[in-house]
């Protein structure tokens, strides 16, 4: 059996599709989900704060690969309800993991805003919610763009962990080619896909940072 260059690309693209789905599904859910976790970890109510911080500690202190396996296997082992979709299990594990990481970035950003900004909002008669959405949030966004872009670029590469439960993402697609056609180069060739994807993201984040650069402080 043989496969030409275009055939390799088509097969890899098929795997890359899952890489993209995992990437965007994780972002779409983890970016908003990080916010309540951040608020939880800053809560003045101690039990909530402790539970949230313990959760974040566990998620950040264990390998994502292990978390993927836990989400996929544990429901079946404990409750006799195995995951029907491997992809769904991976997406859930990634969302939990990245929401925890994002929450720490949000927390750092929120805590870095000087208390005077809140006080100015208060003496101007703004409610806490108004102050947060009209004054604080935008400043937080500006401060977290750089760490978020780092984390999101890490996510691109982390998607390859999905193959640990045999989700056919890009690397897995390349390994299939290796085993079926005895060609090794497509495995290394996948780097091009990751590089282009990360390159595009870097450009986009650079643009965003520039856009937010209209003020200092």
């Amino acid at each position: 059996m043989s496969i030409d260059f275009i055939g390799v690309n088509l097969q890899l693209l098929d795997g890359f599709k899952y890489t993209l789905i995992l990437f965007f599904a994780t972002l779409a859910a983890a970016i908003p989900l990080g916010l309540p976790i951040a608020f939880g970890s800053m809560s003045r109510f101690k039990p909530i704060r402790l539970i949230t911080r313990a959760f974040v500690w566990v998620i950040r202190g264990t390998p994502l690969m292990l978390q993927v396996m836990v989400v996929f296997y544990v429901p079946g082992l404990l409750f006799g309800m195995p995951f029907k979709s491997r992809m769904a299990a991976v997406i859930i594990a990634f969302i939990i993991n990245y929401a925890a990481y994002f929450s720490e970035i949000y927390r750092g950003g929120i805590e870095s805003i000087p208390v005077g900004q809140y006080e100015a909002g208060q003496v101007l008669g703004l409610t806490k919610t108004q102050t947060f959405f009209k004054v604080i949030l935008f400043q937080v966004i500006k401060r977290i763009v750089a760490p978020m872009s780092n984390e999101i670029i890490t996510l691109v590469k982390d998607t390859s962990l999905a193959r640990v439960i045999a989700v056919g993402e890009l690397i897995m697609a390349a390994q299939d080619i290796v085993s079926v056609y005895g060609l090794l180069w497509p495995l290394f060739y996948t780097a091009i896909f990751y590089l282009i994807f990360c390159g595009v993201l870097t450009l986009l984040f650079g643009k965003l940072e520039k856009k937010l650069d209209y003020y200092r402080g």
Partner: peptide, 16 residues
Amino acid sequence: QLKIGLVFQSFNLFPQ
């Protein structure tokens, strides 16, 4: 709150 206004030592303007 609106009966009184306050000017801070450190201004606390909204930078954005």
